[in-house]
Amino acid sequence: MRPLGAFVPLRHSAYSMSAKNHRVLPGFGLALGYTLVYLSLLILLPLGGMVLKASELGFGQIIDIALGERSLAAFRVTFGASLLAALINAFFGLIVAWVLVRYPFPGKRFVDALVDLPFALPTAVAGITLATLYAGNGWLGSHLEPLGIKVAYTPLGIVFALTFITLPFVVRTLQPVIEDIETEVEEAAATLGASRWQTFVKVIFPAIGPALLTGFALAFARALGEFGSVIFIAGNLPLVSEIVPLLIISKLEQYDVLGATALAVVMLAISFVLLLAINALQWWAANRHKNAEPLEVAAGKAGKEAEA
């Protein structure tokens, strides 16, 4: 946290804020203009081209493609597995981020460095390696299959691959936020008599909640589109373990670029709505957090509850 300094009272007046913004700091027009032009050229133009292409099909046909029995099953598998993977990452990612920030242990830097690995390893290599590890005779599969847990070539395999691919998101969004929590606040809660659990629930969790949500959402979004790693471990059986990106590839194998584009547009629309909702939710959570009660007040409450 940076010291806010003497300007703080001024900045809290909403009127002076909006009036000052555009006058004092330069470069708003240039920065926003460049952002919009670059965004339009690199993201909006290509995505627009895709939507335009898909529109050659007509709305009814796009819906038909999206609602076929195989497509519906694939949507279920894709969304279900992505959700599970994001939840697994939210739970374990929180623990990992906490451990990496708060606890000293040997080899910590190396472990911290390892977290970004899924970004750098080509997804196909990840898929092949995971399938080998979790196959019936693999290092892990040979221990899991006697217990009746089959990972490779089942929907569970998809969940595991997606967990690997999206692992960095939750950890990396949480780490700086946990670092930002000042221990003084926790100490205050403690002085006021709160137990560690109460401090966590009342003070720490509200502070890291929005970041956890962001990490979860980014992981979920990235998981929806993932293809390269999944096909090697999924088994790819129709209605059971097919994901939507595989259906897109399948359309391309039939030279059906239009059909592939239509499926991609449906995926894009869902992802867009999802991300918009998450950004709104995060904005709401951050605002609620800012307006409701400062950490110190929360700490006090946690302390009072402990006394009661």
Binding site: T132, Y153, A234, G235
Partner: peptide, 21 residues
Amino acid sequence: NAPLFAAGGRDATTTFMQRGL
């Protein structure tokens, strides 16, 4: 009788030879 559909020819071979399936 196919427990899975491999991603490609090479993947099928790896599954059969290396993973013993």
